[in-house]
Design a binder for these strands. Structure first.
Lengths: 203, 203
DNA sequence: ATTTGAATTAAACAAATGATTAAACAAGTT
DNA sequence: AACTTGTTTAATCATTTGTTTAATTCAAAT
């Protein structure tokens, strides 16, 4: 049991500490802008430990990326596979669930979108989300709603993209729009009412 | 028309060549991931010329960023200040105009969103877009439409964000959603019909 | 033809950065 | 105590990267 380092911060192994710091810094600044020394400092550990536990910056990043992707997805997949909830409810749940998620992890959306482009598009294949989505209750309900003429957008992926865009964009676009319009910060507070703006014609 | 070096690449001064290369690489990979040597190579010039014409990587980036911002904005501002077009038409114009813009500059949205966060939020203040938007015809028409109950979203900024999100997100989210769902590329081709999906209940 | 100044190049520099090494340390085992 | 094993640290290495310098080319002006 050499794993207890009671001296300093926590009931937390150094490996966890490094990962947590890496997650924080990576998500905030992206892979390229992150220096291993940033992570080491944030974690309060020696630089060499990063390479001791994880072999390289890339390896560590890949782990963080996968975990981030997974955390982002499981929420969605869970809701989409609920047989009991209606489509309307699902949309609301996805919206409110993701809004909560983004509030807790403000940097994740842009982080994922950015890093997915440059580096790690292939990482998605390591996650079993494809099946989770492809035969979900959501898909069936959506198809039915389209047939009944309740939803204009026939492609479920477009529907999902539009929904996610409505949820995510106010957050990632905030600094830009804010800079443009010079609107104050608390005017943005109401953003989490966004769920009521999402496809209001649904019900 | 004397000084024409028609032999090689272009009717283009090296300074322009560097800027063009810088725009391309910066927009694609972001500031941190871009090496000055990448730009030099892309431009087909000697590395030192980059510092000869533009003093540093930062300076060059700032120029590219400002120009990108401006190009992204002037389109919007122009449409929003047209007194003759209706709000409905404006929305359609903004949508189709931006879709065209994004198709021509696929990397710009994510580039702007990413770099705005980390580096250069203050650059927006160097552009006279604030006024252009704040007393635009769009704003008045939007207010009127809200009073008449034709638009649910009362805040023009939210309205704009939702609109831009609907336009932009399918593009920047494409690699992600595509990876998740494993959908083919040509299924995404129809994306530019997005304008018809934007606030369909308006008319 | 010579001069002049801008444009361009090859080379090098200095700082940053990812990674490694060798030694020290702590804790358990014999 | 001596030994082993996993952990940590300080120092260093090797490469990358932004920038600079000094020399060279080139085109126009004198």
């Amino acid at each position: 049991m050499a794993s207890r380092n009671n001296s300093k911060i926590a009931e937390q192994t150094t490996e966890e500490r490094i990962k947590e710091a890496a997650r924080k810094v990576f998500q905030k600044k992206g892979f390229a802008a992150t220096r291993t020394r940033d992570i080491a400092e944030e974690a309060g550990i020696n630089l060499a430990l990063l390479n001791y536990y994880f072999r390289s910056k890339e390896k560590l990043f890949e782990i963080i990326m996968l975990e981030t992707l997974f955390g982002f997805m499981q929420n969605l997949a869970f809701i989409m596979n609920d047989d009991k909830s209606t489509l309307q409810t699902k949309v609301e749940l996805i919206a409110s669930g993701y809004i909560d998620f983004i509030i807790r992890n403000p940097n994740v959306p842009l982080f994922m979108l950015s890093e997915m482009r440059a580096n790690s598009g292939g990482l998605l294949k390591k996650l079993p989300i494809k099946q989770l989505v492809s035969n979900s209750a959501f898909l069936k309900q959506h198809r039915k709603a389209v047939e009944e003429g309740k939803i204009a957008e026939p492609h479920p992926l477009h529907f999902l993209m539009n929904l996610l865009g409505l949820i995510v964009f106010p957050f990632i676009g905030k600094p830009m729009l804010q800079g443009i319009s010079g609107v104050s910060d608390n005017q943005f507070k109401k953003i989490d009412d966004a769920k009521e703006e999402v496809y209001p014609g649904l019900d």
